[in-house]
């Protein structure tokens, strides 16, 4: 788990937003040659809500990590979880599934 979290963090540095990608960067036929490359792309741009996790309420059950359809929840070394906003789509499934109501969805404009 811990390694996964670190890997994702490292990958975040290589992230390129769509605005940095030009037509010259397109692979022939739009083929993605690196498997699992979604982790390298900022795909959370079009989110309208984001999950906020309250560690106080969290019991480390890991259901949010398990249920997130986008693998956007990272497991941390301390046993808690955090949301990777580079890929979180704001679907709200983690908030829905959390048995402790530790996750709340807030509008993107809100601080």
């Amino acid at each position: 788990m811990a390694t996964k979290a670190r890997k994702t963090k490292a990958a975040v540095k290589k992230l390129r937003t769509a605005s940095e990608v030009t037509w010259r960067d397109m692979e022939v036929g739009g083929i993605l040659t690196d498997a699992g490359s979604a982790a390298l792309r900022r795909t959370g741009d079009w989110r309208s809500e984001r999950p906020i996790l309250d560690k106080e309420k969290c019991n480390k059950c890991g259901l949010c990590w398990l249920y997130c359809p986008d693998a956007a929840v990272d497991a941390c070394e301390d046993g808690y979880y955090e949301v990777n906003l580079y890929s979180c789509k704001g679907c709200g499934i983690c908030a829905e599934i959390c048995p402790k109501e530790a996750i709340t969805m807030i509008e993107e404009e809100e601080e």
């Binding site: 605005s19 037509w23 739009g30 083929i31 993605l32 040659t33 498997a35």
Partner: peptide, 22 residues
């Protein structure tokens, strides 16, 4: 493993079509 036929959101489709046209 690689992906053929990924989807192209509005922020990628234009680039993909222009690379095809060139």
């Amino acid at each position: 493993p690689m992906t053929h036929g990924a989807f192209g959101p509005p922020d990628m489709y234009t680039e993909s079509k222009i690379s095809q046209e060139v």
